[in-house]
């Protein structure tokens, strides 16, 4: 076995033995208006793209979109389908940044007609990121006698997710509330010959808690 193949086998073994770590997630909700959505209406989950720092990962936006759609109480339009259908009104530099801006934009006849056609009732704007906040330790891999690869050491790191979803009601042109999700988790890789990753899926935890809360936020209250 070549040196590369030996390390590849070790990496594969480490991946197979990967164990999920613990994630602590908290969620908060601020309601500013009544909500309610019928089965023939839909929502769209959008990431803010105008910032040069701290842009929300597209994978997180997709994750929330898929998780909210899992409830099947209402439709969920994909971000790319929505921005294409409304081009050029929701591009990074042209998308409304606040509700006042938004009510002016949706007053445009062509856009309001298009949004009515596609049946989108709520826009959910996601902001935030997942950051690695600390990292300690080290793992070193080497070839021991007989050409067998081995890793030794202990590595740990902490990830911190902070995301906020603002919900805009297209029909009323108002912000109906915000849902905030925070998650934190520590991952470890103890290695005694074979490294065993214990990975805390922090972003996934933030996505699940935010999506669950969003689903109930949108459909909990009877429409007024």
């Amino acid at each position: 076995m070549t040196r590369g193949a030996a390390f590849g086998t070790l990496l594969a073994l480490a991946t197979l033995t990967s164990v999920p770590g613990c994630v602590t997630a908290t969620v908060q909700e601020v309601r500013e208006g009544s909500t309610g959505i019928s089965a023939d209406e839909s929502i769209v989950v959008l990431g803010r793209r105008h910032k040069t720092r701290g842009e929300t990962e597209s994978g997180f936006v997709d994750c929330v979109s898929r998780a909210v759609a899992g409830g099947r109480d209402f439709g969920v339009m994909s971000e790319s389908d929505f921005v294409d259908a409304t081009f050029p009104w929701f591009e990074p530099r042209t998308a409304p940044v606040d509700v006042d801006d938004f009510s002016q934009v949706v007053a445009h006849p062509l856009l309001s007609e298009r949004i009515r056609e596609i049946g989108v009732r709520y826009l959910v704007w996601i902001e935030g990121t997942t950051q690695r906040t600390s990292e300690t330790g080290t793992v070193n891999c080497t070839m021991v006698s007989g050409g067998i690869p081995a890793c030794f050491g202990f590595l740990s790191w902490e990830n911190d997710s902070n995301y906020e979803a603002s919900v805009w009601d297209v029909r009323q042109g108002i912000n109906v509330g915000r849902v905030r999700s925070e998650a934190v988790g520590t991952s470890f890789i103890p290695a005694l010959v074979v490294p065993i990753p214990i990975v805390a899926r922090v972003r996934q935890g933030a996505c699940s808690s935010l999506s669950d809360q969003l689903r109930s936020f949108l459909s909990d209250e009877a429409e007024t």
């Binding site: 081009f87 050029p88 591009e91 990074p92 530099r93 042209t94």
Partner: peptide, 13 residues
């Protein structure tokens, strides 16, 4: 690709 979309959007507006 995003720059080309931006050019198109800026032109349209």
């Amino acid at each position: 690709i995003w720059a080309l979309r931006d050019a198109a959007a800026h032109f349209a507006f």
